[in-house]
């Protein structure tokens, strides 16, 4: 039962949504401005999109960003899934809790701390800063979220599934690839997804560990914004908004899929 809400409550919500979305839509609206600034809308034009697509440096950076996001989330998903399997296999709850709190350190640490401490680490190892260091950092800060997404699926898995597979003569590799991993797929997909968005969203860590030659979108926007407004960034943000919308839709779809399966299971039992 949903109780009826006073009109003021709804007005409040409407204002809240307006506040949350108006800067974003303002940014997108300005990208169609024929003029050179965000102010004084002087007519509809796609000129800044043209600029964007003929700006090779910018396109290279967009490509960098997506390559880093894809590679880092893929590797983080693999390591994180194995980590979750490892944590799950620990029987002593004391050790399990220690592992879980260690896992969560990077999730709660401020970006600046992660960035600065990684910078010290890479310098000590003598690694040159650039693609490699950015990729490693992104893998590192994405692993814990993958673990957190996979672990609940493991916990709700019925252990007799594994017993049955073993009784039927499956070796441990078959148990893993034929029983456990397929069962975990929705959790792994959600983890991959979160890792991907973490990587796309990151600014501070990348800013610390990237060298001169390599740049991602967020870092590039930062350095351009410090020099002043350029509507090319607005055009880019409009495109990024669409991509975010697609990602959210994708994530929503995965979630729906998960809960649909859960419901089906519930009905089967009931």
């Amino acid at each position: 039962m949903v109780e009826k809400q006073s009109r003021w409550a709804n007005v409040y919500l409407v204002v809240m949504f307006l506040i949350l979305y108006s800067p974003i839509f303002y940014l997108i609206f300005c990208s169609f401005n024929a003029g050179q600034y965000m102010q004084n809308f002087s007519g509809f034009s796609l000129v800044h999109y043209g600029e964007l697509f003929s700006d090779n440096r910018m396109l290279q950076i967009v490509l960098n960003t997506f390559v880093i996001a894809l590679l880092s989330s893929l590797l983080a998903t693999i390591i994180g899934t194995f980590g979750a399997l490892g944590i799950f296999s620990v029987r002593k709850s004391f050790i399990k809790n220690i592992l879980l709190s260690l896992n969560n350190i990077l999730l709660v640490s401020p970006d600046v701390i992660i960035g600065a401490s990684f910078l010290i680490f890479f310098t000590l190892l003598g690694l040159s800063l650039g693609f490699g260091s950015v990729l490693m950092s992104h893998i590192a800060f994405s692993i814990p979220i993958v673990v957190l997404m996979v672990l609940p699926k493991l916990n709700e898995m019925n252990s007799s599934l594994i017993d049955a597979a073993q009784d039927l003569g499956a070796n441990s590799w078959q148990v893993l690839t034929r029983v456990i991993l397929p069962y975990l797929t929705p959790g792994i997909a959600a983890g991959f997804f979160m890792a991907f968005t973490y990587s796309l969203d990151d600014f501070a860590v990348t800013f610390f560990v990237t060298g001169n030659g390599f740049s991602t979108l967020a870092v590039e926007i930062y350095s351009r914004a410090r020099q002043g407004v350029s509507l090319e960034i607005n055009a880019l943000s409009a495109i990024m908004f669409i991509i975010s919308l697609l990602l959210v839709a994708g994530y929503f779809f995965i979630n729906q899929h998960n809960s649909a399966r859960k419901n089906k299971k519930g009905r089967g039992r009931g």
């Binding site: 949350l20 974003i24 940014l27 969203d201 600014f203 914004a225 407004v229 990024m240």
Partner: peptide
């Protein structure tokens, strides 16, 4: 819908305010 703006890069949102507040 409330969470959606958090998926948009922090830098872009900050950048929007440069235009709004200048």
């Amino acid at each position: 819908l409330i969470i959606l703006p958090t998926w948009i890069n922090l830098l872009l949102k900050t950048y929007a305010f440069i235009g709004l507040l200048s």
